Every structure is written in C-alpha cells, then in structure tokens.
Computed example of a mutant assay.
Amino acid sequence: MDERLFFPATERNRGPIGEVLSKILPSNGFVLEIASGSGEHGVTFQERFPNIHWQTSDPDPSYRKSISAWIKHQGLIAKMPQPLDLDVQKRPWPLTYEFRSSLKAIVCINMIHISPWGCTQAMFEESGNLLKEDQWLMLYGPFKRNGEHTSESNARFDQSLKVQNPTWGVRDLDVVSEVGIKNGFENHDVFEMPANNLSVIFQKR
C-alpha cells in the first residue's frame, strides 16, 4: 500500500522555498525540518542539496509514515534518515549527540499558524539552545506585518483557521521576531514569496 500523502500547497511552494534555501544553506551538515508533514518538502530538498543531511520530523504518526514512504519511493533510504517523532513542546527534543554537534540550521514550513502559540515559543527556545552563532532558523508561511494582514486572502485564511481552532491563526511578524530576540536570534532577512507568504531567516547571535 502506498502511504505517501500529497499536499497541493507543498507541490506549489517547494520550488520557491528551494530558491531561498539555495541562498543560505551551508555546504554540508545536518538540517532539521520541524513539522515535515507529508515529507514532500524533505525529499525534494534532500535531492536538491545532496551534501546536506536533511532530517525530517513530525509528531503525527500518519505523517511520519508518509515521510518514510516518500524516502523509499525516491530511493533515498541510504542517504536520508527516517523521520523523528518530534513535538516542539516536548523538550529536550530527541536528538542524538552526533546530530546536535553536526546541526547547521532548522527549517519550519507552515507550522506556526496551525498550532498553538506555545509551539512557536517552544521552537524558538529549543532552537536557541541548539544552534550556534550565525546559524539560522527559517520560517515560511503567512504573516501579518505591523499588525495588519498583507492581503484579503490571508485575512480570510486567518478567520478560517480560528474557526477550526481558536488557538490557531496568522501570526504578526513583529511579535514572532520579539520571541526570536528573547532567545538569541535577530531577524536577519525576509523574502517575499508567492501566494502572500514570507520566508523569514532568524540568525543566532
């Protein structure tokens, strides 16, 4: 049985996200992806950046099955590690000493608006503990700027999220940046992305 999941948004945005990653990724080492979902991003970026060890993770067992199925389908079993059962709020994260010592960056795509605010706080706190100076955490997704939605579609999306779960919602980039600063990061760069999304690079000071 094919356990791969297919997310249309992932298929649309993996190219533009890959372009941003090509500007900032180190030449080697481990990258940790938080909330990897279907695994489509993970295998795409592992293939695009073969000198990187792309470590996926997700707390949802069905998503981890999908990630493993994508790794097998793309012939990456010998290269790409299996996904971790990682919930950002359960700390310390289940990372080996070898992984921690080789970690170069953390990537989180489309998570913080579909999780409670405490998940964003926990992600910054643990990332701040794990990453070294000049290493970075990248967030991708919709954001408010200066307290305002950047488009009508994002405003509607925000309302639909809050109907599903009142703890969800499009976050204000200024508020997210404040949490980053508290945990030793600076808002280093912001890339405008398709569909009114942003890629935001937080660099460890």
Rank of each mutant, 00 (worst) to 15 (best):
Q203W: 01
G180Y: 02
L86F: 01
K90W: 00
P83Q: 04
D134Q: 12
Q135D: 12
I112Y: 00
L21R: 12
R48Q: 14
V31F: 00
V170M: 04
G75S: 06
K132T: 07
K90H: 05
V20Q: 11
G180R: 10
S199M: 11
N154T: 07
F45S: 13
A78R: 14
S115E: 03
E47V: 10
Q89E: 13
V190Q: 10
V88G: 08
E126I: 13
K182S: 10
V107H: 06
P116S: 15
Q74F: 08
S115G: 09
T56A: 14
A9V: 04
K65E: 04
S102N: 10
G18W: 02
F45R: 09
E178A: 12
F185T: 04
D85I: 07
G169V: 12
D158Q: 10
K144D: 01
D58A: 09
L32Q: 04
L84S: 06
K144F: 02
L198W: 00
F49A: 15
R156M: 06
F143M: 05
K72E: 09
E133I: 05
G184Y: 05
P81H: 10
M138Y: 01
H113I: 14
P50Y: 09
F191N: 06
I181S: 08
L5S: 03
Y63K: 03
T44C: 15
I181R: 14
T96V: 11
G141K: 11
G42C: 14
E19I: 06
R12G: 03
V175N: 08
I112S: 05
A105D: 02
I109Y: 01
E11K: 09
A35D: 00
K65P: 03
A78N: 12
I106A: 06
K104I: 01
P194T: 08
Q82I: 06
S38R: 03
